[in-house]
Design a binder for these strands. Structure first.
Length: 601
RNA sequence: GGCCCAGUGGUACAGUUGGUUAGCACGCCGCCCUGUCACGGCGGAGGUCGAGGGUUCGAGUCCCUUCUGGGUCGCCA
């Protein structure tokens, strides 16, 4: 029979009880972490979100109370009243409250608990599947509580900084209009409008721009966004953005404001100092040096251009790549000079997952001898040129990819990261930020047979590239920027187009006629007719920021109730089948059950 | 949609070239124990080895299919 708290009120969280309170009466609440019954003496470790506290039952304890304490089991919820006392010499140094305990005078069992499917301890090694099914228990674990609490602190720090700097927090709709550009939308059927659908926002992009038109000048929102795409360790179908927009600013204003934001958040929540200004790379530099637009700059192993050296060495693969508009680049994995053939082949295979047809390699062992996948095309002169360019001094594995630039960058960029993992070149506790700027405005979509916006259709081109919009659209750079940390994109943004003529040109390049553009974004284009300030902004992925802060491997570990790989929720079983009546109200016909068998044969 | 990894009492793991009764730790239950804190001691319960099929005298182990979870490519303006 469970009891209630009537007449008792919590006076302290577990770790707020300290030796300053010795002799005083306190009331504490929480979950039973552990019971240690020594016969005539019994200890309970009590846990709440602040930590652990020991309760003691001994010779002064009334018999009835002691018997009640003996009934306690792990995860029972209790309230205990008692006197704080010193533990004397028996201090537990691994516990924040290890020098004191509560001599309990009253105990109430508020809720009993069945044996949990896994133990509620830090760093437990339970399968994700089980953790997520019993997420409410997983969230009791101290490391998860730390993550979720830190997340709240980060959000608080963001709000304080932005409010101090004149930003207004304004909410935008969750039920909005589908925008077929970009990611797939989650759709919500309308009951009132048969065959019509709302979409959940992929981001509040257009609304925040409208708020600039409306004169709010500085906006922010910590907001859920939805994208119906496949999941990854750092991607969930619903995720949280720190969404920011500013008026009457240029790229420098936005970057400097936002690096101050990041600096303050890391200082307040991690006590970590970030030196400003944060390093910057142009997109082109990032690709050339790291093979990635979200480079991990904690280590070297940079890409080197070997096009000049190798085009005419006689190896047809290289020659064909160059004739096909390609390039030849390489990385040098120092410390892999004695890697065996099997392991090299594994690296080659790894690289092929990223699109390269092959990876040529040249190994220079510690003793100076060479081994290569294309020995017969390597004259002494070419080898020495490669050695010089790759700074090879022995114990090197040079991996070379010849292909179209995007394939070369993707492959070597991925191999570079794989090399770093194998050689353990990075530490999670090391944080290196970098801004990547001057992204291309457009990229060519082979499948659609047209240009698509790399960022979004409202991204402002660089002034000096405007003249290229007609002649060489692929060369136009955007006033767009991403903030990257340790190989993750933390956030990105741009200056927006606010001039009618440039916007029209942009739509033209994207292959929208005026009607299509108005059908999709008419409310924005109309709004721009009534006085639009120059504006721009950025959006940060809150989940990723906290993931990196907590050194987690997945954003699942910093989201209270995340979804699994197929976007379902193991705890609630969402998504689920709904009542036929609900469907009828929404004018959705029920799905016919699939014909059993036959369709294969 | 493709590729890769994993699945063995409640949990985490071990299980040899296929061989008799599937092993260990933690947890759980009971008894004992006055300073424990990963308490200790003694005893006990708990498994259709993810599922289905196949090979075999015999399958946790080999093969096929499938389910579940994870990673990743595609995808993610």
């Amino acid at each position: 029979m469970s009891e209630n708290m009537q007449g008792l009120k919590r006076t302290h969280y577990c770790t707020e009880v300290s030796k300053e309170l010795i002799g005083q009466e306190v009331v504490v609440t929480g979950w039973v972490q552990r019971r240690r019954n020594l016969g005539q003496l019994l200890f309970i470790t009590l846990r709440d979100r602040t930590g652990l506290l020991q309760l003691a039952f001994g010779e002064q304890t009334q018999e009835q109370l002691f018997e009640k304490a003996e009934r306690l089991r792990s995860e029972f919820v209790i309230v205990a009243q008692g006197i704080v006392r010193s533990r004397g010499a028996d201090v537990n140094h691994s516990m924040a409250t290890g020098d004191i305990e509560i001599e309990v005078t009253e105990l109430r069992i508020l809720s009993e608990a069945e044996t949990t499917p896994f133990e509620i301890v830090e760093n437990s090694d339970v399968k994700d599947e089980l953790r997520l099914k019993y997420r409410y228990l997983d969230l009791r674990r101290p490391d998860m509580q730390h993550n979720i609490i830190l997340r709240s602190k980060v959000a608080g720090s963001v709000r304080r900084f932005l409010e101090t700097n004149g930003f207004l927090e304004i909410e935008t709709p969750m039920l909005t209009k589908s925008t077929p550009e970009g990611a797939r939308d989650y759709l919500v059927p309308s009951r009132v409008h048969p065959e019509n659908f709302y979409a959940l926002p992929q981001s509040p992009q257009i609304f925040k721009q409208l708020l600039m038109v409306s004169g709010y000048d500085r906006y922010f929102q910590i907001v859920k966004c939805f994208r119906d795409e496949d999941l990854r360790a750092d991607r969930q179908p619903e995720f949280t953005q720190i969404d920011i927009e500013m008026s009457f600013v240029d790229v420098e204003d936005i970057i400097s404001m936002n690096e101050k934001l990041i600096q303050q958040v890391f200082k307040e929540t991690m006590d970590m100092n970030i030196e400003l200004p944060i390093q910057r790379l142009t997109y082109q530099e990032a690709m050339d040096r790291y093979g990635s637009d979200k480079p991990d700059v904690r280590f070297g192993v940079e890409l080197v251009d070997l096009t000049q050296t190798l085009t005419n060495c006689g190896f047809a693969v290289f020659e064909n790549a160059i004739n096909g508009g390609g390039t030849i680049r390489a990385i040098n994995a120092k410390g892999m000079g004695d890697l065996g053939r099997k392991q090299i082949d594994a690296l080659v295979k790894y690289g092929q997952d990223y699109g390269a047809k092959g990876v040529a390699w040249l190994q220079i062992k510690a003793d100076g001898t060479e081994k290569s996948s294309f020995t017969k095309f390597l004259s002494e002169e070419i080898v020495s040129q490669i050695k010089e360019k790759m700074n090879a001094t022995g114990d090197d594995l040079i991996m070379i990819v010849a292909d179209k630039p995007n394939v070369v960058f993707a492959t070597l960029g991925a191999l570079r990261l794989e090399v770093a993992r194998r050689l353990e070149l990075t530490q999670k506790s090391d944080y290196k930020f970098v801004w990547v700027t001057d992204f291309p405005l457009l990229e060519y979509d082979e499948e659609a047979g047209r240009y698509v916006a790399m960022h979004h259709p409202f991204t402002m081109p660089k002034e000096e590239d405007l003249h290229l919009m007609d002649s060489e659209p692929s060369k136009v750079r955007a006033q767009a920027y991403d903030l990257c940390l340790n190989g993750y994109e933390l956030g990105g943004g741009s200056l927006r187009i606010y001039q009618q003529d440039i916007q029209e040109k942009m739509f033209q390049l994207l292959g929208f006629d005026k009607e299509t553009a108005y059908e999709r974004f008419g409310f924005l284009l109309n709004a721009f007719k009534y006085g639009t300030p120059p504006h721009g902004g950025i959006a940060f992925g809150l989940d990723r920021i906290v993931m990196l802060m907590t050194q987690s491997d997945s954003i699942r570990d910093v989201i209270a109730f995340p979804k699994v790989k197929d976007a379902s929720c193991l705890m609630t079983d969402a998504p689920n089948v709904v009542d036929v009546k609900q469907l009828e109200e929404l004018h959705i016909s029920t799905i016919e059950p699939k014909q059993a068998s036959e369709d294969v044969e």
